[in-house]
Design a binder for these strands. Sequence first.
DNA 1: CAGGTTGTTTATCGAACGACCAACAAACCG
DNA 2: CGGTTTGTTGGTCGTTCGATAAACAACCTG
Lengths: 220, 220
Amino acid sequence: MATRGRPRTFDPDTALRQALDLFWERGYEGTSLNDLAQAMGIASASIYACFGSKEDLFRQVMALYGTTSGEPPRRALRAEPTARAAIHAMLRATADQITGPGTPHYCMLILAAPTGAVENHEVREFLADLRRDMRTTIEDRLARGVTDGDLAASPAGLEAISRYYATVVQGLSIQARDGATRAELETVITCAMAAWEALTSEPEVFVAARSGARSRCRNG
Amino acid sequence: MATRGRPRTFDPDTALRQALDLFWERGYEGTSLNDLAQAMGIASASIYACFGSKEDLFRQVMALYGTTSGEPPRRALRAEPTARAAIHAMLRATADQITGPGTPHYCMLILAAPTGAVENHEVREFLADLRRDMRTTIEDRLARGVTDGDLAASPAGLEAISRYYATVVQGLSIQARDGATRAELETVITCAMAAWEALTSEPEVFVAARSGARSRCRNG
DNA sequence: CAGGTTGTTTATCGAACGACCAACAAACCG
DNA sequence: CGGTTTGTTGGTCGTTCGATAAACAACCTG
């Protein structure tokens, strides 16, 4: 049942790449099936036959995005010898990605569907899961630094530090979206890395943080 | 021509507040006029008569948002005695706002319309302008710290530091949107403030940053 | 009250939405 | 070749989109 019947006249990988470009530019809800069919060069019925629903297509698009644009930051995290170098290289790789030519100046994972209509709640949570995995990946790299001996920090500190750098990564996308240049992002990264020494040397800053979060609910 | 004719049966301020709640939850494109009319308790034609178009309504909603939810962080920036205390208080006020009960756990200014269909480009740029003003406001506060004598930093450093803390503010919204608690945001703020000493004491970190931004365009 | 003015409702506009089906086209098997 | 299988096209489903026109209702002035 592989070579039977009429063969496909378009390349699914190419079509997926074209769908990626459009979803990247307009987000999930901002992209219509007509838009997709036109960009992919096929009829909308062919999209359903090959990829399933619009949501199914989007999930496949995100998988492709993760293995292409998402890979450099992940590789930086993995390949650098120390935790500090890994974080720094990941931030720089992220900045490279979100200011590259020919693609929108932001991370699709972060801005393709942060809010929207109620019926697309599952798509938003799908992306949120991937973002939470992102922080976990950072934390895992920090933990490796502890076992490698190049990083001294408590387990509670690792979660906080990983969340901090995940926050910076996500903030960078907004900055780039609003027109910040690669050089301007670099200054942000420099600032963010300036916290490293204080965060990873004794005494830990989190003895103070644990008593925090007490002043809430100012108004509504 | 003020009290002539049939008086309005709904309160525009109340209706605007209800529109705000809906736009906040679903974003600009995710909110339909039917949704708005239902939430505001009036027919869509009355929306057009009182507020203009959907985009006009959204701009009025954002003005209301700025004077309510946007005020605590701005006040913190203004009222604290030193630049450092002002930044710290602003971050905490932001964290309070985006984890408050009864409202979505993110900043509407940041996530209501980061991407979307081509025809809503002006709405996105309208929000981007407000976000860029946000960074300028932070930089102005840092400059005041210099004249007040509680902060020593170069003009180039002020832009970088303000952009850095604007990045953190914006990243916090993604974190809260993805379920981070107020306490978890506090640890991020603690990390972000840990950079302060290094950023504002000699030698400045930006002597290194100026030669940065040279490794770009890894792949595409 | 009459006449004028304004707000609200109801109904609807044309266009686009996501989704899908039936008919047609092109390859394979024997 | 005929028969089967699969991909693609064109059309259309009911719904919803933002926006508007006309009819009705409520208040003012005089």
